[in-house]
Design a protein around this nucleic acid. Sequence first.
DNA 1: TTTTCCATGTAACTCGTTACATGATTTC
DNA 2: GAAATCATGTAACGAGTTACATGGAAAA
Lengths: 179, 179
Amino acid sequence: MERELLLLGLLRQGAMHGYQLHDFIERNLAFCTDLKKPTAYVLLDKMQANGWVVVREAREGNRPPKRVYSLTPAGEEAFQRLLRENLGAFIAAKTGSDIGLAFIDALPKAEALRLLNQRRAALSAQLAEFEAVPQHQGSYQLLIDHQLHYLRGELRWLDTVIAHIRSRRHVPQRHGERT
Amino acid sequence: MERELLLLGLLRQGAMHGYQLHDFIERNLAFCTDLKKPTAYVLLDKMQANGWVVVREAREGNRPPKRVYSLTPAGEEAFQRLLRENLGAFIAAKTGSDIGLAFIDALPKAEALRLLNQRRAALSAQLAEFEAVPQHQGSYQLLIDHQLHYLRGELRWLDTVIAHIRSRRHVPQRHGERT
DNA sequence: TTTTCCATGTAACTCGTTACATGATTTC
DNA sequence: GAAATCATGTAACGAGTTACATGGAAAA
């Protein structure tokens, strides 16, 4: 329901058409959600079917008319409900991305370190990119702060892992050997 | 590809059948991946089609025979490749779960605080649960440590958010008002 | 004796992505 | 004149989940 919440929340601040919504999300919120164009259009259709939004067609010249959405009272109600649901719960993120660490013993120490340093560089680059993002106004800034906080935490953690691997005598575990 | 990596990595330590694999993942790795039973079975079929594993049917009494999988050399190769791919890259986790924070201004301060404290309690409970997990052997422990590190970081961050909201004069943003 | 566990699977469905299609307008 | 941007959509596909189906063995 996060996608709906997001769209409702954005529309709440003012009417917009699908392209605009997608564009805004893509540019500013890509780090916390992924919403492709077709998905956005389909979602808006559904929200309209729900009675959460109404559409006004605005044509300019010969272009395809913009379908400008705005919140209905029912939409505002849904927004309030979804917002409370979202804020009140904590859902831990599942990266899946660190499953590899469970098997790092399969590699020779030198290669493990090389790969972890490569990973560290990628993380570092993402962090740098984020630190360069200008301050947003309002509560969007919270999302950015959260991401910064998260990335810095990951970096610190990765450094302890690297130190841990480095400081340890190790013979790689071959296929067929049990712990 | 994390799921394949996981299955290969487990099979690498010894032959297992589908039920066993799913059961192990469900019990020990639920926090970093989600792999339902049918998905596991289908995945093992595909891995067999890829030539990554071979099956041996083991029947005990009148039960349905266990399909015991073990790694082939091609499977070991795939494992090595996937492992390197996984370790060398950093993929930031997308919770989607904190989109609500971008709209927290829509709520009266008291309610925002109530919800954030509810969220904090949920997070705290998850953390406590994790702190109770007994030490695993080998590198599985890294996954648990990571999760602990992550949850503690989230808790610290949430506390700063709560403090921030608490310390601020605020009139809720109503529908239709722009920032 | 009823529930839970062991053990495997299939089929329908959901959600979202990719690829494709259209066409005007602005920028290079 | 070509490429990118604005603006909307449809259709096929893919990955994974839910629900369902089966049946023996062990535990309560």
